[in-house]
């Protein structure tokens, strides 16, 4: 059964001569519990797609049905509630609050979520048991990204969206972050969507959607995903 269903979705900026189609009639479905990688070159429209899936932006046309609800025409207030309850975000630049400790950054998310997980346990899960009292500036990039993932997970979201999560990290660290995400998906059976321009990591996913020029170029299901440790790029 389709957990996420995107139907004839388009995002158009401007009009007439200046019309730019960031997403042009996108269609796909994602099943429950899949680890999905959306891959495409810069400017292909994959981030726009992620924003629409995450309730940060509304499509110009089409339907975006997540868990049976069409969020395409949600009001700003409803979208906020949707983000609050159902979505966990991980950004390229972590976006931690510099003035809160690692633990507090995670609490920031857990406090607004009705069925949040135990914050300390989540911190331990992402391997930051010892660094909970540190401020972001005292953490390395990888550690900061782990905090960001912990913050996303602690809300106990239905869907984890990651925008270039390894973009600012070195190879090894990036790999460990991806491992973390893959494990999360496997253990919780929750949907994780990773947006990247790095085609090499496609093999770790259950489902790969390739975007080019605002359109879906390829939609492949991978029945035998590779563990991240074995992928090289």
């Amino acid at each position: 059964m389709a957990y996420i269903e995107v139907r004839n979705e388009s995002k158009i900026y401007g009009s007439g001569e200046q019309e730019v189609r960031a997403n042009d009639n996108v269609n796909f479905t994602i099943s429950k519990g899949e680890l999905t990688v959306i891959v495409g070159a810069s400017g292909a429209g994959k981030s726009t797609l992620l924003n629409i899936l995450g309730g940060m932006d509304s499509p110009t046309k089409g339907q975006v049905i997540i868990n049976g609800k069409d969020i395409a025409n949600y009001s700003s207030r409803k979208m906020t509630t949707f983000r609050r309850r159902s979505i966990g975000f991980v950004f390229q630049f972590y976006n931690l609050i510099p003035n809160l400790t690692a633990l507090e950054n995670v609490e920031l998310a857990s406090q607004i979520s009705p069925d949040a997980l135990d914050v300390k346990k989540v911190m331990a899960d992402v391997g930051l048991k010892q660094r909970m009292a540190n401020f972001p500036a005292q953490l390395s990039g990888g550690e900061q990204q782990r905090v960001a993932i912990a913050r996303a997970i602690a809300k106990n979201p239905e869907l984890l969206l990651c925008d270039e999560p390894t973009g600012a990290l070195d190879y090894q660290t990036g790999k460990s972050i991806l491992t973390l995400l893959q494990n999360f998906s496997r253990q919780t059976k929750k949907n994780v969507i990773i947006v990247t321009h790095n085609g090499m990591i496609k093999s770790m996913a259950d489902h790969v959607i390739e975007i080019g020029d605002g359109k879906v170029k390829q939609d492949i299901l991978n029945s035998k995903p590779t563990p991240v440790e074995q992928i090289e790029w």
Binding site: F82, R84, N95, L108, A109, R151
Partner: peptide, 9 residues
């Protein structure tokens, strides 16, 4: 922006 994205009203 971060907290807005996180779902703050």
């Amino acid at each position: 922006s971060t907290i807005k994205v996180l779902g703050f009203y």
